[in-house]
Design a protein around this nucleic acid. Structure first.
Lengths: 156, 156
DNA sequence: TTCCTTGCAAACAGTTTGCAGTCAT
DNA sequence: ATGACTGCAAACTGTTTGCAAGGAA
């Protein structure tokens, strides 16, 4: 999709940022980061591996895992909390946002805004230093709703 | 703590509820449910196993896992979402509440109230049937704060 | 008696690690 | 040239499954 356009000056990409942190830019990392930068998605390590394998037959899962871990450590990626999920999913959107998750198929949607009033009292915080908060809406996606015997509309 | 008081009529306990659903009450289940009912905690399967092993040397992890799964399926237990956690943690508090989690040691605190305004617009919900929501506050617990080189107070 | 439940052992999925060769710098 | 990075294979952890014996109803 990106076929040698005019020589635009390279923006301070994820790649550039990592290079500055002393990480070496290898073809594998280039591929992984390229995928992650391509759009805001939620990938599992396996997803990443499958996506880049075609164009890079030699990649190993090991490298994918280690690169993802490096990115998380550097705050360029966050892990998505999803009970019942088989594998860890990584979120390329590190800005404050929330999620809507399907309890059945684990489809994941971003909710790109924050909600006011999500603050704990000093007592509730119990000495914790809170760095962020995350709201997860749980439910059933349209597809799963269609193939289910109608969920009760909720009893609470 | 509960040492044979006056013969109060047995309340509709977890145990009773399960019996009604056709589940058989075995000593193993009695032990597991006893632990879970004892207080509102957050256990991993291994935790449960370790807790009941002393008084019941024959329990197997298999039974613990299968019982926990049954309980989740029946809505008597919920899985706690915690990115970075090694194992699934089960929450005996199925009422609407939220969590405060330590990013370092994964200590988990209940926030026993809801927050107003946590509703998605129809557009945001995108056809999902939302059944519940969950707020997770992430940060560092006092203990981890003490053993860390002072976290930045937060840049946002 | 019936068949749900248990526990063992083996299977599994996701992820991590040890190590020697390779490559970015 | 140097040491970070890679990839293979094996190790590991948490969890699930197959199956025969056992126990609740």
């Amino acid at each position: 999709m990106k076929t040698r356009k005019a020589p635009t000056p390279a923006p301070p990409t994820l790649l550039a940022r990592l290079r500055q942190q002393g990480l070496r830019v290898t073809p594998q990392r280039r591929a992984i980061l390229g995928l992650l930068s391509a759009g805001h998605g939620h990938f599992t390590a396996e997803d990443v591996y499958q996506h880049i394998s075609p164009g890079m037959p030699d990649v190993s899962r090991t490298t994918v895992y280690s690169t993802l871990r490096d990115l998380v450590e550097r705050g360029e990626l966050t892990e998505v909390a999803d009970p019942g999920a088989e594998a860890v999913r990584y979120d390329t959107n590190t800005a404050l946002h929330h999620h809507l998750v399907c309890l059945s198929c684990h489809a994941l949607l971003d909710i790109g805004r924050d909600f006011p009033g999500l603050r704990l009292t000093g007592k509730e915080a119990a000495g914790y230093q809170i760095t962020r908060h995350q709201v997860t809406f749980l439910g059933y996606c349209p597809a799963c709703l269609a193939s289910r015997p109608a969920q009760p509309t909720g009893d609470a």
